[in-house]
């Protein structure tokens, strides 16, 4: 076990987060097809979430166990949402 670990530059991460937030808002006004815009907006949101998780929650420096505790529920939520599609989206 190491007794020292490096910490990221928290302010730099914040700058990235703000830039991405502005990019997300601007992207929602782009004159592209709606699906493309939505895709773009959520890629930006996922990137922001990843930045917060990896650097502010120090996930980058954690063990595989903690990764599993994050990834498993995310996978389950995605599975649940997709299995709801037949009844709630394709029902008409």
């Amino acid at each position: 076990m190491t007794t020292e670990r490096a910490r990221p530059n928290y302010v730099a991460v914040w700058v990235w987060l703000v830039v991405l937030m502005i990019a997300g808002v601007l992207a929602s006004y782009l004159p592209f097809a709606k699906s493309a815009v939505i895709f773009l907006v959520f890629v930006v949101a996922a990137t922001k979430a990843l930045l917060v998780a990896l650097y502010y929650m120090h996930l980058r420096f954690e063990s595989g166990l903690i990764y599993a505790m994050v990834i498993v529920p995310v996978v389950l939520v995605i599975a649940l949402t997709f299995l709801l599609f037949p009844d709630l989206v394709f029902h008409h």
């Binding site: 190491t2 007794t3 020292e4 670990r5 490096a6 910490r7």
Partner: peptide, 8 residues
Amino acid sequence: MSDPVAVL
């Protein structure tokens, strides 16, 4: 003394 910090 500054960058790496001791783990609690």
